[in-house]
Design a protein around this nucleic acid. Structure first.
Lengths: 191, 191
DNA sequence: GGAAGAGACTGAGATTTTCTGAGTCTCGCG
DNA sequence: CGCGAGACTCAGAAAATCTCAGTCTCTTCC
């Protein structure tokens, strides 16, 4: 299958513009300038060798092909959106599941129990475990460990506690390391 | 809907890699290097906050999420492919429909009838018309006109015939102007 | 046990794609 | 006829993506 795909940006631009019948409105929706949308759609039309819009002075009009294309493209985007939302609910607002190495518990700052309360908006549960496997199986989102794992593919952040005890480690998948939730947890640990 | 889409490249990389369970094989299919696929997939995983693959020394393995994701993504791509193929059959091998302005016929090189024979692989039909509308409605792919249209959005190529008659114009939608088919026609006109 | 091979990863720099910003054009309206 | 709206173009800026070279781990084969 050597079929060369039209670009996703082009299709998104087309989809938005076709719904609004306006490049300007589509640009606003996509958060770019109208010129960008115009260029995207033109590139798409060029790569297809087909006119999707009629540019009339009064505004845009879909050609017959554009009319036929739109519902299909929308449907495909819906499939992508639904599938994505199903496996990876937007991080925004999602509560993490944390694995806490039993060995670490003693080392935690004495204010920790109070902090766990403040973390409620960000944390769904705290399990006693040090099993890195649970990260890969997506059963927990992060681990708080006593020792570095030296496990490639994982993000490991060393945390130096206030006392002069040994450091502990906050371990997550890439992509979760910098999210709001992780930052809140790290802050609670260091304070 | 402020949902930020995972990038198409990332999804394509994921889809190919998941089918092959190999970044290297996916890279070959996509015509890029393995490093590029690796980076694409990693970016995708980061943007989702989810691990899609387990990287084992023995090779790749889909996580549970990856397994659930794959068929949906494939399906969406199928929809895009089918819809695209339906409205815009790959240019490669497609025969064009040409509109020939009756006024131009006399001016054509005397070898033209012979050329129309040679153009068969590229041309489906030649209609007598000078109606620019037919380009926009995708009823014809190009026009051969006696006069310039000064019609924005169309590509107009001036053709100077061998005699010292007035030039004629080859008019197409953007995207069709440089294709093999158009070049063959232009060549037949000028020779 | 060691050498060689396979496949994935990373970082830097090159390349390509996409976006912006300013200016132009056409049309419809007052 | 001057204005405003919306689409277009071009050049340059910015961002995303790719390649390349080198590293690492594990497996296989002497």
């Amino acid at each position: 299958m050597t079929y060369r795909f039209p670009s996703l940006n082009g299709l998104k631009a087309f989809e938005a513009a076709a719904r609004h019948l306006s490049f300007k409105a589509a640009a606003a929706e996509l958060g770019v300038t109208a010129g960008a949308v115009s260029q995207q759609v033109k590139r798409l039309e060029m790569s297809l060798g087909i006119a999707l819009f009629r540019r009339l002075p009064q505004g845009l009009l879909l050609t017959q092909e554009g009319t036929a294309y739109l519902p299909e493209i929308s449907r495909a985007f819906d499939v992508l959106t639904d599938a994505t939302e199903a496996i990876a609910p937007a991080l925004n607002g999602r509560k993490l599941s944390i694995g806490l190495d039993p060995v670490v518990v003693d080392k935690l700052p004495k204010g920790w129990p109070r902090h766990t309360n403040e973390l409620k908006p960000y944390v769904r549960e705290i399990r006693a475990t040090r099993d890195v496997e649970l990260i890969w199986s997506n059963e927990v989102d992060a681990l708080i460990l006593a020792e570095a794992t030296r496990h490639g593919n994982l993000v490991e952040q060393k945390v130096c506690l206030s006392g002069d005890t040994a450091p502990i480690y906050f371990v997550t998948r890439p992509g979760l390391a910098e999210c709001r939730q992780s930052r809140a947890i790290l802050e609670a640990l260091t304070s």
